[in-house]
Design a protein around this nucleic acid. Sequence first.
DNA 1: GTCTATAAAATGATAGAC
DNA 2: GTCTATCATTTTATAGAC
Lengths: 199, 199
Amino acid sequence: MPQPPPARRRLKPGARRRQILDVATREIAASGFRGASLAEIAENVGVSQPGLLHHFPSKAALLLAVLEQKSAEDTAIVDEVFADAEGTVGQAITALVEVNQRDPERIRLYTVTAAESIDAGHPAHDFYLRRYQGTRARLAERLAKDRERGRLPETLDVAEVATEILALLDGLQFQWLLDPGVDMTGPVRAYFARLYGRT
Amino acid sequence: MPQPPPARRRLKPGARRRQILDVATREIAASGFRGASLAEIAENVGVSQPGLLHHFPSKAALLLAVLEQKSAEDTAIVDEVFADAEGTVGQAITALVEVNQRDPERIRLYTVTAAESIDAGHPAHDFYLRRYQGTRARLAERLAKDRERGRLPETLDVAEVATEILALLDGLQFQWLLDPGVDMTGPVRAYFARLYGRT
DNA sequence: GTCTATAAAATGATAGAC
DNA sequence: GTCTATCATTTTATAGAC
């Protein structure tokens, strides 16, 4: 009785799932959660629309899965630019902008769905509320370390500046997505030059 | 033959039109262009949905009319905060933020529809493209005047800073709309204190 | 200027066969 | 896991009466 090894049966368990997430990311980044349609995503995957809903119970669940996945990628990227313990927040964020500039789609996914999510009834409302609270807090901590090292003025309100930096990045990304001729790196460098003191 | 004075016949020419624009502004600010529905707007106006489309030929036309109207209001507000010829851009923008903070709906209309409009097929895509180009240019001019007056460093790249200021404002407004506990004025004051040199 | 009626298409989701 | 068939809504827009 040759029985196939049970440990191998699930060789490609989430292959289709990943494929769906990929296509959904593109569609949602382009048209937002409201503008994207399950039928179109299914077609681009090469599956029927009920076939798609076998993997994700609803459109909202699909959006949240897309955001969770991209959020994990994001964490890796951010950890990377902050990996140098000697570097300042300014240097890390400047590097981050250069990385982001090579991946408009990921940025667009955030810009588009975050704005939609202002609506309290939007499926990603809580996701973004928590995400921004957490990001502001972590950024403030990192700024506090720069301050302790004497790289930033002792009187600096790090919570205030954390909010400020996030706002600057989001706003620059929007202008750049709308009009790719807009340069993000210049303003970011100028901003941090003033924050850390010109050389 | 008593004929009614023709000059008076159009006493309330666009009353309903204005009412529709009001309701549409609220709905679109809440749900975006894609999320808003003509049926719901019509119901809140107290008119049938075809009755609504008598005044505006299409949903896209309604959106553009809403944006044009709010844009005119906006120009008036901006002119107001820049009215003091002796004041700096920093002072004017700080005042603008305080005015904006009292009208979340107007700000939300912009934040939500601007993000949607990144899509080249969105009816407001061109509107926002031009709007940002114009706003950046005007802001840069005003910064150049501050620079000429010696209020800003001679080496300052005003185009760069104009992009930066707009980004900061947009980003702060988003964080504040998502989480009303976020303070916009603190970061704005801190930003301009550094730009103009601390006192 | 406003209505009813209706078209024509698209939407997210479910039932049930294979 | 994927399909066909189908449902129940909702969508924008038009035709035509009043």
